[in-house]
Structure formats: C-alpha cells, structure tokens
Design a protein around this nucleic acid. Structure first.
Lengths: 224, 224
DNA sequence: TCGTAAATTGACTGACGAGTCAGTCAGGGG
DNA sequence: CCCCTGACTGACTCGTCAGTCAATTTACGA
C-alpha cells in the first residue's frame, strides 16, 4: 500500500542521490540508477516524472530543510547564541545528508539553465535573509559598518566552503562544535592579528586544471 | 598566417566563453558556438580537439592567471599590504573575465568526473597555499589560533561568493577597492560587535529550488 | 484455486548532438 | 587567367540515452 510505495520511492531517492553524487548529474544514467536500486528502468518512471524530477526532489528537500533550520535572529534575545544556533543548524542538516549536499553545491548549477536560476535564487534568499539581519544589527550597533550584502556573501560562501571541505573528509578531526566555535570566532573577531613580526620562507605554487585526455578517439587539429 | 589562425582561435575561445557562461556546458551545443562565432561547426574542430578542449582551455587559462597573481606572503615585509595585494589581484584577474570566472565557479564541477577532480584539486591548492601561510602566521603570532585549514576554507569560500555576487551585478556600486578593504577588514576584525542591544522584528523565509516543469512531454506517474 | 488489478520489466524508439569528411571557396603566385 | 593550397563548410553518421509500453509477474481477495 501507500507505505510500500513510499518506501520504494525513498529507496530510489536514496540510491539516486548516491549515483548523482558519485557520477554527477549528466554522467548518471537512468540505467545506472535503476541498476543501483535493483529495479528496472521503467519502474523509475512509475515513481518519478523524469530524471530531472528525481534530482529536483533531492535538492528541493534539502533546500526546504535548510530554510526551516535557520531561525531569524531575534535581537531581543542572546544574539551570539542564536547565531551559533544557526551555524550549528545548517551544519547539522547538511551533515546528515552529505551526498545531497554535494549535489546542491557542486551539481545543481550545472544541470540546466532552469536549475541555475533556481540555485541562484536559493542562495540569494539565504543571503538576503542574512543581509537583512545584519543591516538590523548595524542599526543596533552590533554589526560593523559596511555593506551588509558583502558580509552576507562572505559568510554564506565561507560556510559553504567549510562544509564542502568537511563533507569530503569522513574521519574529520574537527568536531562539529569546534567548527561552530571557530566559525563564530572569525565572524566575531576575524583571524588576522597584525602586530608582531619575525622571519619566514617564501613559496610559489601554480594550480592548474582541466587538460586531461578523454575517451572519444581521433580528431584533426591545428594550432598557430 | 600564424597570426590569423591565432586570431580565429581566440575569437572562438571568446565566443565560446560567452555561450558556455550563458547556457552552461551541457546545454551549450557545438552548433551554438559555431553559430555565435559565425563559423561552420567543422571549423571548430580545426582549432580544437573537441568540445571539452575548448572549455578546458578557458578554465585552465584562468586558473594559471590566478595562481600567478597570488604572491606568497612574505612575513618580513608589510603583511597587511601583501594580503590586500592578493585580494586585489584575485579580484582583478577575475573581474577581467567574468564569463570565464562563472565557468570556473559554476560549471566546471558539473562537466564530468574528471573536471570535478581537477576543480577540487585547484581549490585545494589555493587553500593549501593559504593554510600554509596562515600556519606560518600563527607561529609568528599574527594569526589567531585554530585550524588554519578552516580559516583558509572560510576565506577562499567567502571570496569566491563575493566574486560571484559581484560578477552578477554589472553596475556594482561597490568599488573594487571598497571590496578589498571590506574583505580585509573582516579578516582582521570580523563583523560582529556583540555588546549593545535594543529591539527588532522577526522574519522567516523558505527558500526552494528545482521543481520547475521541463520540455519533454508526457510520462506516467504515481505517488503514494 | 482462480481472476483481477497493481507492480514490474526490459527491449525498443526517437531525438539529439558530437564529431567527420568530401566537397566548395578564396586568394595569390605563376 | 588558371591552378594550387589550405581554410572553411555543413549534410551526414553513428553512438547514446531518456522515456515508452506491451508483456509478464506478483499480490491478494473471493
């Protein structure tokens, strides 16, 4: 009955998140998902409109959870605690479903035009929410002067990167709480303490990406 | 001669960056690029191995420029100035080619497995470079105690997001220098100034993405 | 046990798009 | 003026894959 169908649905979603996260949206074929779910391809279409719908449901579910986890900061109460709560909540939600998180972060904007817009608007919503709170905070004198949107971007971006990083190392030494504290600490006081001095070596590193060979064979080529 | 070929090559690259940035890698068809470059599809293959190679060259060029723009911080000299210089340099490079920047940030990891790895390793290189400098800074007492990798992630991520944001608004009110100063300011002192208090409203916003309809028609469906 | 509905299957189809290549065209040298 | 060369063209090929649906299996109430 309804429960069985629901189970199957969730099983497919779960498996799909795995396949999508491993191969990326475009390289994940419906046949791959079907195989991983130990089901025939046709079955997928009994539960979802199309490939996009599966992906969409995953991403969307996470987005909703994230939005709900965040509480707008009430400036009457303990601000620090609330900010920490939000950081903690976001980390908590994302840590629970690392695979879907990677979809949201790495894959979503590469799916198609439509998804890019959606993703952008999701981030924008988050940033606007934060920026508004920060502007409010500035009025109260508890947030540094300056463009609150820029602060919002820095914060969301910084958090995002930390989470991506964290997601990749399973046996992360950092406790979730340590991350929360460290992150909060930077928001509160930055990390540069210019004052002292001494000596130091130099380094220069060149980072490069993307010249690897592919599968399809031959092709003529020319160059100036 | 060589110059003509070189010109054509660059023309194609330039046009391609536009098409890729507008449509995303997978939705950008070789026919689109050819049309935009006012050239036949076959011509593209006279200058590049394949689609991937065009994209690769774009991304790679930017990555190299970025790497070269960054100077490892010399702790003997004026650290603040050097840090600012780096922020400025990164912003400068990316601001010069906003379209390619968006490819690196939004598209690259969605192209294929291989590109994802490359992109990851590029970011890792940047972060490692920064983290190393920060660790050095900690030894000198000019960087707050705590996991330097986490600080590095926050910084790179924050910068990235600010740049993405900036890239989107053409008529950005923020001067480049203002962004540099603001960013540096946060690194130096954070933005939260918890102390004062007063009143404030509340808000709650739900952000959602990805349920939009697609082109392909029909399909059976079911739900529990 | 049988009959019906629901669930599942997987071979098939149709679209699509990257890459090819036989042929055209432009220009410049003789 | 004609031919040669090399840039350029674009119709075509061919593999791929999302989505379909007739056939089959399973579930279950009578």
């Amino acid at each position: 009955m309804s429960t069985k169908k629901q189970d199957r649905r969730e099983q497919i979603l779960s498996v799909a998140s795995d396949v999508f996260a491993t191969k990326g949206y475009h390289e994940a074929k419906m046949d791959d998902i079907a195989a991983a779910a130990r089901v025939a391809k046709g079955t997928l279409y009994l539960y979802f409109q199309d490939k996009r719908a599966i992906f969409s449901e995953l991403i969307n579910g996470l987005a909703v959870q994230l939005s709900m986890a965040i509480i707008p900061v009430d400036t009457e109460a303990d601000v620090a605690a609330q900010v920490k709560h939000n950081i903690r909540a976001i980390i908590g939600v994302l840590a629970q479903q690392p695979r879907v998180t990677s979809l949201l972060f790495d894959q979503a904007s590469g799916v198609d035009e439509n998804f890019r817009l959606k993703t952008d608007s999701f981030y924008r919503t988050l940033k606007d929410l934060l920026a508004t709170s920060l502007a409010e905070g500035q009025r109260l004198g508890i947030v540094r002067e300056g463009d609150p949107k820029l602060y919002a971007s820095m914060t969301i971006g910084g958090l995002r990167e930390v989470l991506v990083e964290t997601r990749q190392k399973r046996g992360s030494k950092r406790t979730r709480e340590q991350v929360v504290e460290a992150f909060f600490g930077v928001l509160e006081g930055g990390y540069l303490r210019l004052g002292a001095m001494r000596k130091g070596p130099k380094r220069r590193v060149y980072a490069t990406i993307g010249e690897a060979p592919r599968k399809r064979p031959k092709a003529r080529s020319t160059d100036g």
